[in-house]
Nucleic acid binder design. Sequence first.
DNA 1: TGACATAAGTTAGCTAGGCTAACTAAACTG
DNA 2: CAGTTTAGTTAGCCTAGCTAACTTATGTCA
Lengths: 154, 154
Amino acid sequence: MNESSSPPGGPESPAREIIHRVADRLHKQAIRLLRRLRREDVSTGLSPARASALSVLVFTGPLTLGALALAEQVSAPTMSRVVAALTGDGLVKRETDPEDGRVVRLRATAKGVRLLQQGRARRLRAFGDLLAPLDDDELAVLLRATELLERVVR
Amino acid sequence: MNESSSPPGGPESPAREIIHRVADRLHKQAIRLLRRLRREDVSTGLSPARASALSVLVFTGPLTLGALALAEQVSAPTMSRVVAALTGDGLVKRETDPEDGRVVRLRATAKGVRLLQQGRARRLRAFGDLLAPLDDDELAVLLRATELLERVVR
DNA sequence: TGACATAAGTTAGCTAGGCTAACTAAACTG
DNA sequence: CAGTTTAGTTAGCCTAGCTAACTTATGTCA
């Protein structure tokens, strides 16, 4: 496949052609990076879905089940099951809302926080090891790129 | 959690502290980006695992089942099943190796190539739409960052 | 050359995690 | 207070990950 070929209908703006190269290659690298870092998560004993849900609870504080499902972009039944596993392992506790008897408030336990932070540290250490060969200018480029992504991905 | 706190044992190199910020934030953005782009794949009717396997076959050419499993970092049984689905949909065809009767050579069909390229185009268009607000300097930063990732993720 | 070892895939059977549909219980609303 | 809406759960399906055990084909070597 030739990414830079013009679509049928006329040549596209040469100034914007860089968009396609960036989109293509950055997409590929994002996949490779996450695949690589995922290896580190194995040792926590937490699956990706559980680690991710627990992470949201730890870093954004207690949430209702629905809010957590929304944050993780999964359906309520899916989150309900993930949460059941987390509470079963004592990593999250359920609390009833005094205002509204329907909602389930979820809060990471001390054990959950500890486990998550260990896993997170491992992952960031692994990523850090990958980044170690870069000099400070190169790291600055990555940081700027990160800021651009933060702005652009909504 | 405070990412920039020093580990117990002494302050770390201030020059390298940027590594942790980059690792943490870039990791987050990679997750958000892929989650976002994955939405586009739904309309191809291909699940992520199938799309990814087909993509490897299209872009790197015919492979044995074992080589494809290795490329996708999954076990042989897992790939065997994914391939069964792809062949069932007429997107991939199996060929026997004249040299070695054990191996299964896999090749994307014309239909498979077409479907994949459509999906790819959609995904890249979506990413392109996200990147559209950036000016050329900002795109250049992203491109440089991509090159750094290519170098660093092995 | 026949017996054994190795290698490539498949089959069987488990788990996790995604979904929709259908249900329960609680809270609104008129 | 009847009906509707909302939060979450249960049931049931599918995909995709795994290991263990099997089949078939190659390779090895006494």
